[in-house]
């Protein structure tokens, strides 16, 4: 027990020399080694951040591409007469990564917006009876009529999908007012 309680490095007798020979730890060197390891970690962190920045630029490039696509025409495979008043449907426009909502208010009034919240892109839940599109992520909401933010973190209005409905109830989407 006595032997255990004594740390070898604190021993001053000859036994100390033997221990040092067997385990030659250079404290200064070891300390420097640890700091060098830390330096490497910080540089690796910097590399990660730089990669993140490049990823953001790539995401932005993709967004610009979607923006270019967003004036293509697309006929929805659902007829307006199949949708009840106050009901909404989900479709993707201008590409499969861009969910949009179509909300039927009445036969003569149909609204459509991007489903991505303009705060952090969470999917919105339409609440036609309350006249808003609700974002459950941070409790944000958009006005159903205008797409403007009502409350919560979102500051920008929702991109509005431009569409036309013909006499037979065929819905044609042909653009986005402000692509995300």
């Amino acid at each position: 027990m006595d032997k255990l309680s004594k740390h070898p490095s604190r021993e001053t007798d000859q036994h100390d020399e033997g221990w040092r020979e067997q385990y030659p730890i250079d404290t200064v060197k070891e300390q420097n080694q640890n700091r060098r390891q830390f330096l490497k970690t910080v540089v690796a962190g910097s590399a990660l951040l730089a990669c993140g920045q490049v990823a953001l630029v790539a995401a932005e490039a993709r967004r610009a591409q979607v923006k270019q696509l967003s004036d293509k025409r697309m006929v929805l495979d659902v007829n307006l007469s199949d949708i009840a008043d106050g009901e909404s449907i989900l479709f993707h426009y201008p590409d499969e990564h861009s969910p949009c909502l179509l909300i039927k208010i009445s036969d003569s009034k149909v609204l459509s917006y991007s489903q991505k919240c303009t705060h952090l892109a969470c999917p919105l839940i339409p609440k036609a009876e309350e006249g808003m599109l609700f974002c459950p992520c941070h409790k944000g909401a958009f006005d159903l009529e205008t797409g403007n933010p009502l409350f919560g973190p979102p500051k920008r209005a929702l991109p509005r999908v431009q569409l036309s409905v013909d006499d037979t109830g065929l819905i044609t989407v042909y653009g986005m007012e402000q692509a995300l």
């Binding site: 951040l49 730089a50 920045q53 953001l56 932005e60 303009t118 995300l180």
Partner: peptide, 18 residues
């Protein structure tokens, strides 16, 4: 926020720092 003008310079700056 949908503003992208600063993204390229920021990425270049970050790479330079790296």
């Amino acid at each position: 926020a949908g503003e992208s003008t600063a993204l390229w310079p920021a990425a270049l700056f970050s790479i330079l720092l790296l």
